[in-house]
Design a protein around this nucleic acid. Structure first.
Length: 313
DNA sequence: GAATCGTGGCG
DNA sequence: TCGCCAAGATT
C-alpha cells in the first residue's frame, strides 16, 4: 500500500481543479442532474468516447424523454434508437433496467450502491458514477481515464500495459478524494481524455507534471512508442472480418427493415455479404443464434424457411 | 477470469 | 494500413 503525503495531495487537488475550471469540456450530461439523463449518459459512455455520446444522447433523450417512455417502448425501437452506438446489449439492458426500476422502485432510480448494482448493465463504475454525478454524493469513481492518470501520477508507469490493478486504483482514489468529488472526478476524466492520453500524453500541458511519478519516463520517450505488442489472442474471424463486425452488419440490416416484415436467412445473408452462398447458412445461423440469445434478434419458422427480425417484446 | 460484445478515430 | 483505444458489464 502506497503512502501519500498530505501536501502532495493538496497540490494535486489545487492544480487539477484549477486546470479543470479553465479547460473543461462542455458536455451535455454536465448540465443536468436528472438521474434518468445521467443514467442514459453513463450507459452510453461505457467503452464509448464522450464525443460520440455527446452527439447521440440528445437524439435518444428526444425519442425517450423519461424512464417510463423507455420502459414502455419495444425492444426493437430502443435498438433502432441505439444506432451508431455499438455494443447493442447495452440498449437491451438499459430498457430492461427501466422496467425493473418501475416494478421494484416505483419508477425512481435507487440511490444506494447495492440497489444500483442489482440492476442490469450497472457495474461498479456506473453505480459509483451515478451516486456521484446524479445524486451529488461524495464518492470515488474509477474509469479507464482515472485509472491511467492515477497510475501514472502516483506510480511509475511505463506503458498502458503496466497500469496498476483495479484494487490499487480504487483504494488510491478513495484515499485522495477531495470534498467536491463531482468536479474532481470529472476533472480527472477530462485530464485523461485530453492531456494524459494513452498514446502520446501531452505532459508539457499537464497541470500536475511536476508532481507526476512518471514524468521522467516521458522525457525518455518511453511512453511515446507503440506499445510492446503482447501476443493478444486473435478474435474469431470469418473472411478476415471479426465476428462482432458481422453481427453489427446484421443488426444494422434489421434496423433498416420495416417493423412488420422480416428477412429470410438467405436474403439477410446477401445483404450483409454480397457473394453470400447457401453453403454459408450454418455460419449465418450461428451468428443469428447469438443475437437471439442476447435478446437483440428474433427468429420465426414458416414451413421450412426461417425469418429474422429485431427482437420484439 | 478470460472471452465476448460495435463503431469510429487516430497515430 | 492496421492495430490500439475508448466514462465497462456480463457470463
Amino acid at each position: 500500500m502506497r503512502k501519500f503525503h498530505r501536501r502532495t495531495i493538496k497540490a494535486l487537488h489545487r492544480n487539477v481543479l484549477r486546470w479543470y475550471r479553465k479547460h473543461q469540456r462542455q458536455l451535455f450530461w454536465r448540465s443536468t442532474r436528472d438521474p434518468y439523463e445521467i443514467l442514459v449518459s453513463e450507459i452510453m459512455l461505457q467503452q464509448t468516447q464522450a464525443s460520440r455520446v455527446q452527439e447521440k444522447l440528445p437524439q435518444f433523450l428526444d425519442r425517450f424523454p423519461t424512464l417510463r417512455t423507455l420502459a414502455h417502448a419495444s425492444r426493437a425501437d430502443v435498438i433502432r434508437a441505439w444506432r451508431g452506438m455499438g455494443y447493442n446489449n447495452r440498449a437491451v439492458r438499459l430498457r430492461e433496467l427501466a422496467r425493473k426500476v418501475i416494478e421494484r422502485h416505483e419508477g425512481q432510480l435507487p440511490c444506494r450502491i447495492e440497489e444500483l448494482l442489482r440492476l442490469p448493465g450497472i457495474g461498479k463504475y456506473t453505480a459509483h458514477a451515478l451516486t456521484c454525478f446524479a445524486y451529488g454524493r461524495r464518492m470515488p469513481v474509477v474509469d479507464v481515464n482515472i485509472r491511467r492518470v492515477l497510475s501514472r501520477v502516483l506510480w511509475k508507469t511505463k506503458s498502458t500495459a503496466e497500469l496498476r490493478t483495479d484494487d490499487e486504483i480504487w483504494s488510491a482514489a478513495e484515499r485522495i478524494l477531495p470534498k467536491d468529488s463531482y468536479s474532481w472526478n470529472q476533472a480527472l476524466m477530462d485530464l485523461g481524455a485530453t492531456v494524459c492520453t494513452a498514446r502520446r500524453p501531452k505532459c508539457e500541458e499537464c497541470p500536475i507534471a511536476s508532481i507526476c511519478s512518471s514524468r521522467h519516463l516521458h522525457k525518455l520517450g518511453v511512453m511515446n512508442g507503440r506499445q510492446a505488442h503482447q501476443a493478444k489472442k486473435m478474435e474469431p474471424r470469418y473472411n478476415g472480418i471479426p465476428h462482432r463486425i458481422w453481427r453489427g452488419r446484421i443488426v444494422e440490416a434489421l434496423r433498416n427493415m420495416s417493423s412488420e416484415s422480416s428477412f429470410s436467412l438467405v436474403r439477410l445473408g446477401h445483404i450483409i455479404k454480397s457473394d453470400f452462398s447457401k453453403r454459408e447458412l450454418p455460419w449465418l445461423s450461428r451468428l443469428i443464434d447469438g443475437l437471439v440469445r442476447d435478446g437483440i434478434a428474433h427468429t420465426s419458422k414458416h414451413r421450412s424457411t426461417i425469418s429474422v427480425m429485431l427482437a420484439g417484446e
